[in-house]
Structures are given as structure tokens and as C-alpha cells.
Simulated assay, not measured.
Amino acid sequence: MKTIILNQPQELKLIHQDFDDTLAPHEALLKIHRIGICGTDYHAYRGRQPFFSYPRVLGHELGAEVIALGSEAQNGGIKVGAKVSVEPYLNCGECQPCKNGRTNCCESLKVLGVHIDGGMVEYLKVPVNKLHTSEKLAYEQLALVETLGIGSHAVQRANVTEKDIVLVIGAGPIGLSVIQFAKINGAKIAVMDFSEQRLAFANQAIGIDVSIVPNENYSADDLRKTLGGNLPTVVFDATGNAQSMMKAFSYVCFGGKLVYVGLFQGEVTFFDPDFHRREITLLASRNALPADFKHIISKMESGEINTKAWLTHEAAFEDLPEIFETWLDPKSQVIKAMVVL
């Protein structure tokens, strides 16, 4: 079986390895057709990904075909030949958060391509309950569902409505996924990023109300002026940058919410009296839930989400080790790169 493995930072290789296609009762065997490349993969390649060890097979944004089912997986509605998106969060089902329906917060969560080997392979075995089908969507669309799930879950965490003024900091793929669902929920949306190109893409692909290219001294007073005298009711930080994440506290209105979608390896500090005075709600958002996958597939099938705009770069599976590093260059202007098998 052809496999692409990250042996160590900056060492991505195509190898051939044996594959045991014997299935456990609740497993499905998948033929991988599309692999989306995300920030996690880039961080791992650079050696900057938290909770990560090498060597590792990357890949958790997957569009795949079901080619076999285990003995107890054949009566669950998934059929051989189905096109599926893979929910890559393997939870235990036994811990307190799992029993409370918070499977994304499983105490022993294993994410494909992060904690265990993922989908940069020809064939992959996964629990059948981690598959989400669509008869309408193409494989590249199904590979986008997990990325969109991060934004969908974050927006639901904040309970965004049409009454909200939302600021999204960071217009990379995760920020774009937040923008997408904040817009679906009817909020007014401002987006902050140092890249005018990313802001232009966000406006063209999704549609935003305000674009902000901040300077180093950009302040809450500047933001208030930009927003006509108001501050955001909800701020999403999708940067994974420590300085940005801590500065984001100053942008939240009295009684507002701050949602951390990105993360970094370190400590967050803030001035507690100001935090209390404004009664800010601080939320973390982690991965997504099964309901998010179903919600996203429905929105994609109805045409409410324009997936074509997201896909800016593509490579054949065998070419990826040579091409991958070029996608790290800001001049390549990658929004979402897709690997084709």
C-alpha cells in the first residue's frame, strides 16, 4: 500500500507498506480519494504541532469510498460503494464527557493524523460510526467537511445569532470556516488579518461586512471607530498566535464572548479586573461533534456553502512529498490544498 509518512520535521516520504485488510466487526474499509491539507499538517511538518510525535502518517480531512464492511457494520445504513466524509476524532465512549455527549472532549481522544496514523494512505480502516455519507457531494467536497466542522462547532459554542457583531481574527482556513457559519447565522461580520489577499478572498468567497488590516498599535478604540461606535459581541481568535489571543480580550464588548479556536503551546494571561468588570465569557472550541458533520453536509448539498472557492491548489498523491513545502511559501497563496488519489 502506498503511504506518505512524515518521518521527522521536513522529511515527508512516499513508501510502500503491507496492509492488513481484516476488519473488526464495527469497522469499515475505505479507499481514500481526497486528502485536504490543513494547518495541523503544516505545523507538524515544521515541527510546531502540539501533542505530536514522529514518525506519523498525516491526513485527517478525508473524502473516501466504502469498499468493505465488518460483520456488525452492515446494518447501520452505510453501504459498500458509499461516498463518505470521515469524522477523524476517535473517542472512547466510556469517559464522562463521552457519556455526556461531548465526544470531542473525550479524555483519551485520538485524532487521525495527529495522535495516531491518518489518511495519507490508499486504504484506511475506521469505525463505521465515524462515517458521514452523501449521494450528492464529490470527494473533494467531503474532504472539506472536517475543516468546516471546526468553524461550525465554534459558532455553535458562542450561540451566534443575527443580533451579534462578530469579529474573526485570522482569515486562514479555520477563520474562514468560522466566517462561513457566522454568516449563515445572520451576524454582522468583521474580519481582521495582516493579509489583504486573505481578506479579499474571504469577501469574495463568503462575503463579509468589514475588513481590517491592523497595524501594531491597533486598539479597541480603533476597532470601535471601525464598527461605528460598537465593539464585537463575539470575538473568535483563529490565529494560534499568543500575542493575538491575549490582545483579543480588549476587543470584546461588555457582556461579550471570546472564543479561542486556534491554540498555541503556552499560557494565556489577562488582566482579571477588566475581565470581571466587563463580564466576558471565555470559551475554548475543540474539534467538532457528529451533528456538525451532518449539518455541514446538509448546507453543502443545498448550495448554501460554496466549496469550489476554497480549493486553490491540488497535487497527485505521489507528487506530494516534493510539492508540500512549496505550499508553505506565502507567495503560493494557498487557501486549501487537496491531494488526489
Rank of each mutant, 00 (worst) to 15 (best):
A316S: 15
F275R: 07
N159F: 12
T307Q: 09
G101S: 01
A82F: 08
S219A: 13
S108M: 11
G113A: 09
V111W: 09
M245L: 02
I335M: 09
P25A: 09
Q243V: 04
A82M: 05
V111K: 12
D237G: 05
E61L: 06
Q265W: 08
I280F: 00
C92S: 03
M338N: 04
L167P: 12
C98F: 02
S244G: 11
F293K: 00
F19W: 01
G47H: 08
I323S: 13
N203C: 11
G175T: 06
P330C: 02
D209N: 08
K130S: 12
P173E: 07
C106A: 10
H16I: 13
S244I: 06
S85D: 05
L148M: 13
E135S: 15
L124G: 11
G118S: 04
L311A: 02
N159L: 13
Y45Q: 07
F194I: 15
N241C: 04
V126P: 02
I165E: 07
P232N: 04
V213Q: 06
F254V: 15
T40R: 06
R277P: 05
A284D: 05
L14H: 10
N75W: 09
S134T: 14
S195W: 11
A158G: 03
G151S: 12
S298Y: 04
G172H: 01
T239M: 01
T326A: 14
R224L: 03
K99I: 13
E135I: 15
L223S: 06
R46S: 15
S250G: 10
T307F: 13
K83H: 05
V261K: 08
N159V: 12
C253Y: 05
D221T: 14
I296A: 14
G70Q: 02
V235T: 05
F236V: 07
Y54M: 02
M120L: 15
G262N: 02
A238I: 07
L199F: 08
G93H: 03
L283P: 11
R277Y: 09
V259T: 04
V340H: 11
Q74S: 14
G93K: 10
T281S: 14
A242D: 10
Q74G: 14
E27I: 10
N306M: 07
A200D: 04
F317L: 11
N203M: 13
G81K: 09
G36F: 00
D274T: 11
N75A: 14
S219G: 12
E140D: 14
K183H: 10
T161K: 00
L23F: 08
E61N: 11
S152L: 07
